[in-house]
Amino acid sequence: MFIDIQNMCFNYTNSSAKAVEGFTFSVQKGEVISILGRSGSGKSTILRLIAGLEMPKCGSFTLAGKKIFDDYTFVQPEKRGIGMVFQDYALFPHMCVADNILFGLPKMSRHEKMKRLKEVLELVELEGFEKRYPHQLSGGQQQRVALARAIAPQPELILLDEPFSNLDTDLLVKIREDLRRILKKANATAIFVTHNQNDAHALADRIIKIKDGRIDQVGRPCDLLGIPTNDEVELELLPEESQKELVSV
């Protein structure tokens, strides 16, 4: 398996309750996985644990044959080869688009860096925006820059935290399609968290449903959406606008 997570658990220092418990899951290369759950279900915590931004209390994680963590090992986030797109994109406000994207590129010649910059800008269809600063871009453009920045160093895995929560509803469908196209074209393995079933359905090859920090259901979107759980019924009853308002963990 390309990604193998076994029995991952976690609780925050100021709480004795388990935020994530017994999370076991595998992903194949090139798969796009959605972690779907309600606010407070632990889905964003799972993403942060995979990223290395939180330290798990137990479990193990292997990525492309490399041990990322277990009882003996903990690889720091910058050494994992994992890219991440943050909920609010976290584009460095003091850097232009080009500098944001070049920031994470490993040591290579200037010519190679420029080549890579051109490639990713083409991929996200933002050629000509190199010198713009984040505040000069729309929400959708910012998201694409964040994606380009995460993809540029060619990470083994890309994580996306609520990638559509900051976008207007009328832009949503187009950007969802764009994102899937970009991820597939880049042959990226990706995990994204969302509270919105429509997002999960439109983007994911497989969905993991999370409830109270545990895996509730796993399956293909077409299979899972056919057998709604009680929670799902509640979620589906909400209009998309309201679903967007639910905040991730």
Binding site: A51, P77, A90, F103, P153
Partner: peptide, 21 residues
């Protein structure tokens, strides 16, 4: 901490992130 996390997720060390971000 998001900008710091973002920088580290791009493979940049905490120390370099401190100076660059």
């Amino acid at each position: 901490t998001d900008f710091r996390d973002a920088s580290r997720m791009l493979g940049v060390s905490g120390f370099r992130t401190f100076f660059k971000v």
